[in-house]
Amino acid sequence: MEIKCYIQASAAISPQQSFEGSYEPQLLPLEARNLLRAQEPGYAGFIPPNSLRRMSRLLKMGLTTALQCLRNANAPVPGAIITGTGRGSLQDTEKFLHDIRTYEETALNPTPFIQSTYNSVNGLIALQQQCTDYNNTFVHRGFSFEHALLDSLLQIQEGAESVLTGGFDEMTLEHFFIKSRIGYWKSALTQPAEMLVSGTPGAIAGEGATFFLIGTAPGAVELMGMQMSYKPDAAGVSETLAQFLAQHGVKEEEIDLLVSGRNGDVRFDHFYDIAEKALTPATAKIHFKQFCGEYDTAGAFGMWTATQELLSGRHKTALIYNHFYGEQHTFILLQRH
């Protein structure tokens, strides 16, 4: 990329205490099911009561994370707003489906329909911050946040000074059950501490909202680049990684941190072996899904984790590698200055 791009600020709501204060990830205990629920902050300090009363959970989570990111950046109005979400507001989609059945297609409340629209969070951020710039929403599993990030990088190359970008997804109990019917989750209760050595198919479900303000003003962490790969085989992953590093002039041994999406799903974990083997044994590894669980836009929390590590000063160059059930693969390179 011709124009350098930096992470100016970030914010995350996740199953961890990540929204404010210092971040110390915990291996959280699970009791009833393989689902890590997000710890939600108080929303009243972010959203006016007259708006808050109507909003469903994901809208509050997404909007508040975006606002916290802008507060952290001291920038009330971002340039473009570009987000990703795999499922949008499931709670609203489910409510509208149930209402259609319960009330037999008559006298339906419009609010769940409006809020089930995938770009509703984007619209709300723009509305609350009065931002009339470019606004886009990607809805494609493990390429939701990732294409939002690529679009943001394009915006920067085209002259934007800053872009607010993020990803958010929630998991409802209803949708957790639906996905359990086709093998998304581990069938036996598995603790995050044992997730990686479980030796079983499926993942632990998660949820969260993560936002970044990226822009051209020099900052501590540079977003060097990203590369996506759709349904590659093992050789394809290996080749993509080598080309990606070469393109950015980064040698394998320079990478001192790998933030990986390894989630203990024996069907797809072998892809992560490829990235681990390509790097030196000295490279530190963080498997972030132990902390946030698996969801469409978990990759955003991976990038947030890497950002926190670089800001702590412990590492200099981080490679993030994530894929979603073996289909959408993404590499991201961050470097501390």
Binding site: N109, P110, T111
Partner: peptide, 9 residues
């Protein structure tokens, strides 16, 4: 206006 629709419901 969305509230007005809700009240009609």
């Amino acid at each position: 206006s969305i509230d007005s629709l809700e009240l009609m419901v």
